[in-house]
Amino acid sequence: MAENAPDSPSSEQFITLLNAAHGRLLGFLRVMLGNSADAEDVLQRASMTIWRKFGEFDPSKDFFTWASSFAFYEAKNFQRVSARSRLHFDDELLQRLAEERVPDLDQREARLAAMDRCIEELDDSGRELVREFYLNKTEVAALAERQGRAPQTLYNKLNALRRLLADCMKRKTTQEAGS
């Protein structure tokens, strides 16, 4: 009878690697697909492929680089079959975005950290609006009604806040890079 399983790459390693690369893979897909729901959807599908191909992964190589190629093809495939919208970036642009995004992802953590500080600088009503919007994207109209405002007004306010936050994030990251 056999003893213990020999030690070699296992599901546990797979999950550890995928968990570690998860945020960057999502960030990679977002710039091609434009929104988080599609990026999550595609990453979910790509994860299945990555798991199936994991036997071919060379542990001495970088997992993200390896996995992102599957994510890239899954994104292309998703755009081809997605019936939800016809508005997609063409393959040439996708390729370009994918190539440039990989080195750009080095800045991602700094941006996320900067944004967390920027949000804290907002007043309560601003934070509330941001929270409501990102949790329930479809419900700007409902939110507007509750606050007794026109949906467009609220949406404009929200986008002004997003712009403000984006500027703040940029300021904080360039300051840090300079210091």
Partner: peptide, 9 residues
């Protein structure tokens, strides 16, 4: 950067 901002929010 915009997409990272969205992800952070």
């Amino acid at each position: 950067a915009f997409q990272d901002a969205e992800a952070a929010l």
